[in-house]
Amino acid sequence: MESFRKNLSVFLAFFTPSAGWLFLFFIAPLGIIFVYSFSETISLTEVELTWTFENYGRLLEPEIQTLFWRSIWLASISTAVCLVVGYPVALVIATAPAKWKPWLLLIVILPFWTNLLIRTYALLNILGTRGRVNEGLEWLWTKADGFLTLIGLGAYDLIGEEFEPIVFLGRWSGVIIGLVYVHLPFTILPIYAALERLDRSYLEASLDLGASQWRTFRSVLLPLTMAGVITAAIITFIPMLGSFLTPALLGRGQVDMIANVIERQFKGANDWPFGAAMSLFLLYVTFIILAIQAFAAMRKQKRSERRG
């Protein structure tokens, strides 16, 4: 930094392009959205800045409240599922032989190499009522039904008269499966990093003192990797909350999340000011979550400094 101060032109040469880019495509649009959120639609194509708070006021409407809480709820459940599924995966990778690790990590990030849209369509194919999952279940049902008939119980319709497919699409379940699928790598990687940093002798010490594997997980491993788990939860939850494509395709318009309704304001509803207010509200929620985490981390840091 010292040398930058001396060589101002070098500093500017490096700084200007990226700063300019950021300003042009991030700060400026954000500013426009900010202005929009205090504006009113006066005709089909015109918007006037009136510094009204009405757009924010409308966020309190029961319909919008329901939408927000549903989004938070869906993202929370999906994050929880990601943590429960992702932790063991991260643990397996962290404890795998060194030569396997890069390959296992590659498998985790491999989905990123495929377009999200294509992956989501693939999920449609898997989760549909005539999709692969239900196909497999139907096959199982037919076999079970055949077996029941064989042992003379066929007449009682113990497992239903005919196979009924499980409906995922247009339901919470489908959206949650989709959200978990898309965001799982974000959960696994920070937890993996925390596990990798952990000194193995803590675990050995726990076993050595007579703790079972489960107890060691609960009392030593999990508490010592909690920072990684919290990071994972935050960077999984935030993009989930703003998810657009997954609820749009897997929810089929019946399980809307915030982003779906925002999109509608800018397109069908032609209510840019309200859309802008909703977008910014989402941003504020994200900031609040990050601020809480930063505050908690700061307090922890201070506490250990006081001790030191």
């Binding site: 050595d208 007579g210 010592l224």
Partner: peptide
Amino acid sequence: VAPNRRPVNMVFQSYAVFPH
């Protein structure tokens, strides 16, 4: 026999005192 069932205890080189 698993380490948690042996009547021996160890002091690790890094001590492994649980920091939490």
